[in-house]
Design a protein around this nucleic acid. Structure first.
Lengths: 336, 336
DNA sequence: CATAGTTACTTAATCGGTTAAGTAAATAAA
DNA sequence: TTTATTTACTTAACCGATTAAGTAACTATG
């Protein structure tokens, strides 16, 4: 069975393809009667317009790209959820690209977008991404781009983040209030601005409490899960921290694993706060005090900004810097 | 700056667009020298072919669709991971569609694929989906479709599942071995064949052990998280089970929540096995005995089958019924 | 009544590639 | 030497929609 095309409808109704197209798009040039006839036949034959034909002609694809490091992370999964909700509402399609924290892969993906494959981009960059080396700057002149969570601060375009600095500040202060005096921070990457923000909030809290900032209290991690785990073990063994801020979900999990291995008792010997959206945080042993990021909301907001810019070319994307607050959810991992 | 097109390359090199196209596609009709010149200029100008133009002409989009109920579920997130790995390798693009367990939304999404938007479909159907009412049967004649996990057994096309019946059998037997005599099963939906399989494995284990199959030991749930939680509470209160099989990740989590609320002690009063890919299962309180499904592998396998069929039209998709075994990971939630 | 405007269409160009068919020149075969 | 074949291109049609420009019939305006 051939696909139903506009031409087939035109032949059946003895009209031109132009008329069919206009009738389907509710053009005022077409009489009420003809429009009805066309739309009824279209429905009857289950006509679905060829998206590639219309994208080619209209130079718009009704498709956006979501570029993220991974999916198997509650934050990104929830963010996709939020993005998809808005996209569906606006009749847009969502292409997903995973960078696996590799900035070269990211680069290759972004390069493909030169082609006009997508109308806009939502991106959370890799841990390796340095804005300078990046084609992002160039691409952002051609296409609307909205950063969410892992942003490039250098680029003048929309950003949706959470209050990373303040959240880390509050989390650190919470640990201090719970008696911690030697607090370590597990940082995902030096490159990421959100991590730098979190570190800065952490440092501010230490300073305010008059606590020293010991030289190796902040440790950095990569994309290598096994390596990270080993490094967490090493860090915990060497430093004898009484408090830990884990800046990613995976690092928080690694702390549980490391404590099990090293026989460190949470929360008695070590209190932990994790930046995490794990739905199971409250059922962990001990339940995990989290900085719960508004992942769904962030995805939704980022998508909304993007669509606003797609609808209105003059929408000042570059001036959109939305910050949605996280919430510290206190549980047993920081109990006294 | 205008997008670089094949025509621009043609003008710069004083060649026809046909030559450019062939040179870029390494056609043997083009001399080595010309091909090099073309490819070098293309690289220099960062030419990226317009995917919509070539899709329109070639009637193939190098794009596949992944249709799933949700992303914020470890199983689906990992499955996407596996799918994406294969798609990236093959140079395909991945469109993600969420049905939110709503078969009408699913239907609408599938209907769109009549247009040739995608070359193939990977789908895990909603809890509501009944194969009969479904356009899937019709669509599967036009496009290669591979089911993964939540399959429609009625349709003659490829299916990738795990050994649901056997896994449930083993899980149930495990509970019996651990002393359970009154085991309940929390089922996601009557419609889903994988759930029917799991129920059947569960019943088989009961039968083999000579245990009665009490009438309301199997309870059914919907998409309503809050409603489900209430129903789990109700079920646990009424039946005084000593063992539970939770057939989805969310239901497993609900059991933890319900136990907390009702003051039921796991594993002493209630032993629990969950079908789940939660990375945190081992850190839960108590750690959760799981039927760990090979989510990544299933995604990868499903995608591989799809691409095989895309490459070779004669590949007998309908005869591909792959089963990848799950593993029972025994933890504290079923300890004696 | 002549002209302008509106209505409801059609014709044809276009988007940017791909590809069947055509061609001129060079090379090989008869 | 003539014909056939190969090489390396070009021309033009095509994919299926959208849309600028054109047109015939009818209506309104001065």
């Amino acid at each position: 069975m051939e696909n139903v095309t506009i031409r087939m409808l035109a032949e059946k109704l003895q009209l031109s393809t132009a008329t069919i197209s206009k009738a389907l798009n509710n053009s005022h040039e077409i009489s009420e009667e003809t429009r009805k006839r066309v739309q009824e036949l279209a429905k009857e034959l289950n006509y679905v317009p060829n998206p590639y034909a219309s994208s080619l002609r209209k130079k718009s694809s009704k498709t956006i790209a979501v570029v993220i490091p991974e999916v198997a992370d509650s934050f990104f999964a929830e963010a996709i959820n939020g993005i998809e909700a808005v996209a569906k509402e606006k009749g847009y399609h969502v292409l997903i690209y995973l960078t696996h924290e590799n900035s070269q892969q990211e680069q290759a993906i972004l390069n493909d977008f030169q082609s006009g494959r997508v109308d806009g981009i939502l991106i959370s960059v890799t841990m390796e991404t340095a804005a300078s080396e990046h084609g992002l700057a160039h691409l952002s002149k051609e296409l609307p781009i909205v950063f969410f969570d892992r942003v490039c601060e250098e680029l003048p375009t929309a950003r949706v983040t959470t209050n990373d600095k303040e959240a880390a500040f509050i989390a650190t202060r919470h640990l201090i209030e719970r008696g911690c005096r030697n607090i370590g921070l597990l940082a995902a990457s030096q490159q990421l601005s959100i991590i730098r923000q979190r570190i800065s909030g952490y440092e501010k809290a230490l300073k305010e409490a008059g606590l020293p900032l010991s030289p190796n209290a902040v440790t950095y991690y990569t994309n290598d899960t096994v390596g990270n785990y080993k490094k967490v073990c090493e860090t915990l063994r060497q430093h004898r921290f009484d408090g830990i801020i884990a800046t990613t979900e995976k690092l928080a999990t690694s702390v549980y694993e490391a404590c099990e291995t090293l026989g460190i008792r949470m929360p008695d010997e070590l209190k932990v706060v994790g930046f995490s959206n794990l739905s199971t945080a409250r059922f962990l042993q001990p339940s995990l005090t989290t900085v719960a990021q508004p992942a769904f909301e962030m995805g939704k907001t980022a998508a909304t900004l993007l669509f606003r810019s797609l609808k209105n070319n003059h929408f000042p994307l570059a001036h959109q810097q939305v910050e949605i607050p996280s919430q510290l959810v206190i549980r047993q991992s920081t109990a006294v």
